[in-house]
Design a binder for these strands. Structure first.
Lengths: 249, 249
DNA sequence: CTGTTCTTCAAACGCTCGTTTGAAACTTTC
DNA sequence: GAAAGTTTCAAACGAGCGTTTGAAGAACAG
């Protein structure tokens, strides 16, 4: 008969150690690059423990991400509810970004040191593995859809199409930056010694995103990117494309 | 003795077929997810051909990316030279983005159909594999540094630190969007039937990026993201961080 | 045609991967 | 303390990986 343990059983300790090691290693190497042998040896448990306690690699990573992200998205939606209930107007872009960022920062502060939550978040969105992509889409798609609707109300001047793209741009800037791959090296000389300050990072990101979201919609009938040799054709192609686009409301 | 072939030799054909298959598969599966067996069977050549003609998997992908990216960065720098020589003032953000985007679009149009160059570009920047990261940093770092300097002149109101971050945000939005993983599904309902139009995409991206780059610098002495229980401490940490930052010129 | 060089090919090597197995070790229950 | 259940452990499995090998085939020179 299965009994609920009053203190943390050794089995629970094993589960915790595995999840913790998986988090740390996923941060650095991604899903494909993190082998179960790496996880189990790093957690100092037996190789078979992952399959015994979680059922497999996919399920381990699902459990690892769900533990963090469920709380994150719940807090985000709660804050969104708050803003939508309290405001006399619909929530502004600033408020929506706050509803997205503040819970993430809070969780990042509350999480044990040496395991930065925001990089985990970024990596999860960047990672190309189908397992993670499916998980994010299925499990957190609805929450993101609610934010999308809220942004649509905050930015009524944008067509739905335009808005979708801008949120995509926003997600890209966010995830890419949070993931903090060594892409730093490309731009170079960002925070050489200091360890990363998540709050500072999000504070820098916020005005960039707000300005981007609120930018005027693009104009489609000039020749900005036309090639030299095909000016006329390119113009034709552009305007026909523009016609099929639906432009702006 | 090695003779220069007047027509494409069968060996050259093999090389071409391998590179073409590698491009197509890398687009979908990334570096780690693209096995040589997948490449060679897709190109209908022998498994050993990759090691014979290129020397190994790493070298194959380096050759594949270099073939496209060398031309791209050369064209970008040429256009940058043009703008810097012709203008009475330093090139604007718009011009710099044009110098970045226009060669990419031209190459995308010139490349054979069915192998979209811009997704390749995005994937290369997103991919977590150390091989590609090192390649991009070493081979194209200098070119990016020149653009960084140009952006610094176009945006003199930003501190070097702030500028680095904004370029990082820009790269994130760009790479993430171009890569076009199924992250679309998260935001949902982007171009359901239509195949992607690269020019339209970059036209949408441009105003977003320009507005973001030109946004006012963030203010660091309010409590926007302070947690409820640690208002005072958070404020202290923020101001000390602000002091060590170098702020604005 | 002969000999040399370049290219292809099937087979195998050594390795790592996720997963399975079955017997030990440990807990809990009666 | 014996029995039942739970958790660990070392070992192995089968599959896929990048790479190597050596012989067979093709292309070309003299």
């Amino acid at each position: 008969m299965l009994m609920p343990p009053k203190t943390a059983s050794s089995a629970d300790q094993t589960r915790q150690r595995i999840i913790h090691a998986a988090e740390r290693l996923f941060l650095e190497h991604g899903f494909d690059g993190t082998s179960l042998r790496l996880v189990t040896s790093s957690a100092r448990v037996n190789l078979g423990a992952v399959n015994y306690h979680f059922g497999g690699k996919d399920a381990l990573f699902e459990a690892m991400l769900a533990r963090r992200f469920d709380a994150l998205h719940a807090a985000r939606l709660l804050l969104l509810d708050e803003y939508q209930a309290a405001a006399q107007q619909v929530p502004s872009c600033e408020q929506l970004l706050t509803a997205l960022f503040k819970p993430a920062l809070t969780l990042a502060r509350e999480s044990e040191p040496g395991c930065d939550f925001l990089r985990l978040l970024g990596r999860a969105y960047i990672d190309p593995s189908p397992v993670l992509r499916r998980l994010l889409a299925e499990r957190y798609g609805p929450a993101i859809a609610r934010f999308k609707d809220a942004f649509a109300e905050a930015l009524p001047q944008l067509s739905r199409q335009e808005l979708s793209w801008r949120l995509h741009f926003m997600l890209g800037a966010l995830a890419y930056t949070l993931a903090g791959t060594d892409a730093w090296k490309l731009i170079s000389a960002i925070q050489p010694d200091h360890q990363r300050d998540d709050e500072l990072l999000l504070r820098r990101l916020t005005p960039f995103l707000i300005a981007g979201l609120q930018a005027p919609a693009p104009i489609f009938d000039d020749d900005l990117y036309a090639t030299k040799r095909t000016v006329a054709t390119s113009h034709d192609a552009t305007s026909s494309r523009n016609a099929s686009d639906g432009a702006m409301p």
